[in-house]
Design a protein around this nucleic acid. Structure first.
Lengths: 197, 197
DNA sequence: GACAACATACCAACCGGTCGGTATGCTTAC
DNA sequence: GTAAGCATACCGACCGGTTGGTATGTTGTC
């Protein structure tokens, strides 16, 4: 929307409950509220009261509810991108070990409330894939861009593996995301994290 | 609701576009409309106009929108249950072959519009897992009951396999469902069925 | 003093649900 | 067999609260 992206002070907010700007606070609570209630069921008033701002402030920063969703998806990409970039699973020298370390890392994230570890964009795209191409594409970008960061490790691990014949690194990276997204749905259904295997 | 369940004439409607009773028509269109737009975004009027009934008829048959969702989940379990029960993947003598035949069968279902092959209960539980325990449990039952039908084949295939050491049949059956649900999300995000591998 | 960052007050459409009423069929009594 | 009595299925206007969005201040800052 804005031609020049506001420069955040290099600090990763990640889970900060109180953020300086109202815009940032709205984005932060949007991620959490939408993960819990879903996109359609989340009202603008919900977000405003959760962020401690008024409706005027909301529509001052975001053109519409839909625009907020797109911005939230981008925000999500940033936050999780930083989280994964600084994660320890990049350390092993062996690519296959890095892949397993990634899976361990994902498993370690599954703690606390459901809305705290499920995926924002997976939740949103489920609801709006038909009604809002803008949001859908934003979600799609988020998922595929994360999968792409995994691709090199997968490719290297496959190359040095014996049975790397007809398996494609990109497909495998996407498959991993599918498993994770599906596991989130099972967790929501059974209210149990046991589906993390 | 009614002490004695109305006797349906043993016929499986499966995909009949026109069904005799208004109640049945509402359930049929609910499955399709909700899969496309999501639960919250689907209005009662949407369902009424799609089913060709009035609001009065809707609330005559269903106490509330939530009650319809629970009924729709049960309806979904019935319809898909019949579909899988009569599917050809049960034919092979070898359990492992039956498992692969099941996967092939699932892949063969991925045709046409997205809303035609995705899972109703997976879509719904994503939205209401926090706000409506009734709907969530109905969805959970639907998923796990289907997974349970797979369990015997998985168990047998694992038993006759060499590396059946620390793999559990139930876990594996649920894992399969997770992959499928996740694949649906990817399909919705990328608008491409290629994620069916 | 001008512009961004908010707050307050408000609106029109929408949505789940209600309500009075009708049409039809099934039972039972005569 | 027919009419009263009642239940089921359905209609569609209507209601009140909610929702996304707007119009108009107010305040602080450069």
């Amino acid at each position: 929307m804005s031609p020049i992206k506001k420069q955040v002070p290099a600090k990763i907010p990640s889970k900060a409950p109180a953020k300086a700007s109202a815009k940032g606070r709205i984005l932060d609570v949007a991620v959490n509220v939408i993960r819990g209630k879903g996109y359609s069921a989340t009202t603008v008033d919900d977000l405003c009261s959760a962020a401690g701002v008024t409706k005027g402030a909301f529509f001052h920063h975001f053109e519409s509810k839909e625009a907020l969703a797109v911005a939230a998806a981008a925000h999500w990409t940033e936050v999780t991108g930083a989280l994964f970039e600084n994660a320890p699973y990049h350390l092993p020298d062996n690519a296959a070990d890095r892949v397993f370390a990634y899976l361990d890392f994902r498993a370690s994230l599954l703690e606390g409330e459901i809305a705290e570890y499920t995926c924002l964009v997976g939740t949103m795209v489920q609801e709006v894939h038909e009604s809002s191409p803008e949001i859908r594409d934003a979600c799609s970008r988020s998922i595929t861009s994360h999968a792409e960061t995994l691709e090199p490790d997968f490719a290297e691990a496959l190359a040095s593996s014996s049975n790397g014949k007809n398996v494609n690194a990109r497909t495998l990276a996407l498959h991993t995301q599918a498993v994770l997204q599906g596991a989130f749905i099972l967790a929501k259904a059974t209210q149990d994290v046991g589906a993390a295997v």
